[in-house]
Design a protein around this nucleic acid. Sequence first.
DNA 1: CGCGGCATTGACTCATTTCAAAGGTGGTGG
DNA 2: CCACCACCTTTGAAATGAGTCAATGCCGCG
Lengths: 228, 228
Amino acid sequence: MSAYPGSVSSQHAPHYVPRSTVHPQRPHRFESLDSHAVMTRCRRGQTICSEGRSAENWYRLKSGTAKEYVDRADGRRQIVDLLLPGNFFGFAAGEEYDFAVEAVTDNTVVACYPRRRIEMLAETDPQLAGEITAVAFEGLSRVQAQLLILGRVTAPKKVGAFLIELARRLSDGPERVVLPISRYDIADYLAISVETVSRSLTDLKHRGAIALSGKRCVKIVDRDALDG
Amino acid sequence: MSAYPGSVSSQHAPHYVPRSTVHPQRPHRFESLDSHAVMTRCRRGQTICSEGRSAENWYRLKSGTAKEYVDRADGRRQIVDLLLPGNFFGFAAGEEYDFAVEAVTDNTVVACYPRRRIEMLAETDPQLAGEITAVAFEGLSRVQAQLLILGRVTAPKKVGAFLIELARRLSDGPERVVLPISRYDIADYLAISVETVSRSLTDLKHRGAIALSGKRCVKIVDRDALDG
DNA sequence: CGCGGCATTGACTCATTTCAAAGGTGGTGG
DNA sequence: CCACCACCTTTGAAATGAGTCAATGCCGCG
């Protein structure tokens, strides 16, 4: 169980073309602040923010995919949040980021909101203040959901719960999931080894719980068999 | 791996006497709202709020210990947050609580803040709004910390990381931890079986990483051996 | 066409779950 | 006051699951 050696760097990887944005045009929280936001387009593997750096921005993912993670002393990597279009991130309880965030796909676009300025605006804009709180609650929900997935007993159940959660968050339809991340990233998200992720997927396939179309497309056939 | 049959109910259990409150008199966020708060004293096992119920309150633990959890279909219980004095809880992204919260010790006192009223006050009190956000970030940090603990490979390392996290959150001093919860609750927190929790503790003791005084008092002898 | 990243599969080892049993502790009721 | 009972903790043995090491094949990009 370890972060794939090359998952840190970026070059020469087959570029996974992301699905169309999940909520491309839908109005969102902070929309009124888009004039204050700096848009950044990232390439696969590019760092958006680093652990220990001064937490100067809040972020919103506009398109693509990103992962929030820590690298452990033993070389393993733990993903603590998977970021899809519409998700906010970059919250820190203290003055520094506790985690790093990295783009997973090319053409990952993030809106960067200068924290100080937003906080100042919130001082006179109660509605904005409420939206900040709501966004923090959303982040809390995502991590709690991940915690429940990690809490499952066997690896196939973890992978199954992960697929169900993805189906919920994505808009591919309730029975179709296009995996936004590699097996290696799934392993780092679920805190299991890559081999176990792979074996779990083939196991679920053989048991008729899912069907695979290529490497990235999963059809949920028997939902109960996934989280049972 | 399962919630102890009796951990759901409450009666007839040896009453664990909690340590003195962690931050008994220190000023805290929401302090200005204590006039709006309803104080409730709970007995061990008493439910503070239930999953699916309308999320009408935010809470702050004043003394004692509480656990936030979900019961799974297979009978296992996953604790998603361990609540110590000073901690806020009861946040929900939607209109209903996603989790249940239950007192772990007798004489657990919680301050209940009516959510609607607080939100209304926050509309005209930007500082309060900021404190709500800060409290949400604290909750996020706690769950992320738990996620990192669950992400460890072996059970002894999970238990070790749990002890270190407890030592950080408690004020027993950096080398002394008085366990606020039973082995069963630790198991439900770490998503491992009770037997494995017990074995991990004796393992850590034999390896000289910790020393045990009674069942509940742990002295951290070799910190590096715990999270190595 | 070859390289780097990605995915799958096999064999082996070791950790954890599960099932079983025993001892300890503190309330509560007889 | 004592005995019972529910809860808590620990230990053992067997079975299962996951990690590790190793090898192979795939695919896109340069």
